[in-house]
Amino acid sequence: MATPVLDKVEAEAAASPYITATFRIRRFNPEISDEATWEDFQVEIDPKERVLDALHKIKWELDGSLTFRRSCAHGICGSDAMRINGKNRLACKTLIKDINPEKPITVEAIKGLTVLKDLVVDMEPFFQAYRDVMPFLVTEGNEPTRERLQSPEDRERFDDTTKCILCAACTSSCPVFWNDGQYFGPAAIVNAHRFIFDSRDEAGEQRLEILNDRDGVWRCRTTFNCTDACPRGIEVTKAIQEVKRALITRRF
């Protein structure tokens, strides 16, 4: 190794940035109590680590009963949307240093869906809304032998909404959804948008009719919470506006 020993020692001293952060977590376990409570955990952690790392540290070293969903740990599977310091985020995409670890960091389940245990919510209503917008390509006539052609411009038209990972951060940040779970919610509309604006698809009219429903796009009050919450950077509110416009003009 070419690096002198002294440098290494210095580097290690500089790279010893552990801090003690307080995680204030909303706990709920109906097997124990019908009441949800806040519980504080002190965690020694490098602030460049993720909130998910802190939750793992708590689960693995302090309290094995702390329950949350997670899988890929880098923002692509959509398992770990939660409310961190009052904002919807993915725990695996939120670095501790970016959310002011000087103060207690609050972590709670996303809102508007029934909490089943700690940070785990019932995702079924969310996926039901998704299924209701016909989230699949519909075409008529005979299939071509090779691929359907689509120009790069037509492909680009719906690129943004193909990024959705169905984490529910947007839908569960929406005040309309909090007040009325019947509303389709931003994620379902985003996924309808993905097909309505796909030049290969032929069921745009049907999807627009579904979203013309009393629980459809017209409930959106453009508060932009969904756009702020999206961990994939999708312009959710814009997509909803485009669906609204398509409903008026019937052009898409």
């Binding site: 691929e147 052609l149 790069p152 698809d201």
Partner: peptide, 18 residues
């Protein structure tokens, strides 16, 4: 690959649309 395209997969496209 062609099956996935027919199922709706949004592949990147060439200028010719393939």
């Amino acid at each position: 690959v062609l099956d996935l395209e027919k199922m709706g997969l949004p592949f990147g496209r060439t200028p010719k649309g393939e």
